[in-house]
């Protein structure tokens, strides 16, 4: 379990998070939603260990995050930042292969690493781009390549691995938004704990178990996505009037629409 308790993050005068307690369990997909500037990325950075915490603590499998070495952490959790830039024109295969580097321990890549990379490329539907230069790809293609890289990092984790994904579908077309979320859903079913920052509440409803709702640095609500996401809450948090509809074709699933 990846657990943050009573997290407060202050930078200068600004309070980015105040007294947030959350936990991410293996096998579940959690959506983090909230308006721009609510602290979603900050919370993700706290859980990844990138963000200095003013108060509170983060534990991974009951051990303080700060007690892990970078190398140990890299074998257990992978992080997809919102934006990634590549400094030099590496090929797609090279980029995805870098995801395996925590497992190499200074040695060369083995057949197994290539097999995993190959599977990740296929899973994120970028296999045909393997030989292309990363910097020449479109935004959506890059996002899928980065997702492939991140997935290879915890592909064959024996203990539960954790995926922290900051807006992983922001540049993707409709079909790929769904296929990529199905893919991370499958990772969760295989035992990983997955955190996704999302803006599309319908994607959260469709693919996530739990939801954490942030507003102005505070955790406004958290729990089962079906229970938490109500018209009232969405109006309070996002200041938008919405309604839920449930067409027969969806057999009970709800869809949120703005009014």
């Amino acid at each position: 379990m990846l657990e943050a308790s009573h997290i407060t993050v202050q930078i200068g005068q600004a309070t980015l998070l105040s007294d947030v307690s959350v936990s991410l369990k293996p096998g579940e997909v959690v959506a983090v939603v909230g308006p721009n500037g609510a602290g979603k990325s900050t919370l993700l950075n706290v859980l990844s260990g990138d963000q200095k915490i003013t108060q509170g603590e983060v534990r991974l499998e009951d051990k303080l995050l700060t007690d892990y070495s970078r190398q140990m952490l890299a074998k257990k959790r992978a992080v997809l930042p919102q934006q990634s830039s590549l400094a030099f024109p590496f090929s797609v295969l090279d980029v995805v292969l870098m995801g395996r580097s925590p497992h190499l321990d200074g040695g060369a890549e083995t057949e197994k690493d290539y097999r995993i990379v190959h599977k990740a490329l296929a899973a994120t539907e970028v296999e045909h781009l393997a030989g292309r230069i990363y910097t020449t790809l479109s935004g959506g293609e890059r996002q899928r390549v980065q997702l492939a890289r991140v997935l290879t990092q915890i592909w064959d984790c024996s203990d539960p691995g954790y995926l922290l994904l900051d807006e992983p579908v922001s540049a993707l077309d409709l079909a790929h938004q769904h296929s990529m979320l199905k893919l991370v859903r499958k990772f969760a079913e295989d035992g990983a704990g997955v955190l996704v920052v999302l803006h599309d509440l319908n994607l959260a409803l469709q693919y996530c178990d739990d939801v954490w709702v942030l507003k102005a640095g505070r955790l406004t609500a958290d729990g089962k996505v079906d229970k938490i996401l109500t018209a009232q809450l969405i109006e309070n948090v996002f200041d938008v009037s919405v309604a839920f509809v449930s067409p027969d074709e969806l057999s009970g699933r709800r869809v949120v629409i703005s009014l």
């Binding site: 990634s84 400094a87 580097s101």
Partner: peptide
């Protein structure tokens, strides 16, 4: 090899276990 990984970005390199 570390320089290769570093070209992904400082934060990304850190997530991959590189100081």
């Amino acid at each position: 090899r570390a320089l290769n990984i570093f070209s992904l970005g400082e934060a990304e390199a850190g997530h991959l276990g590189l100081s």
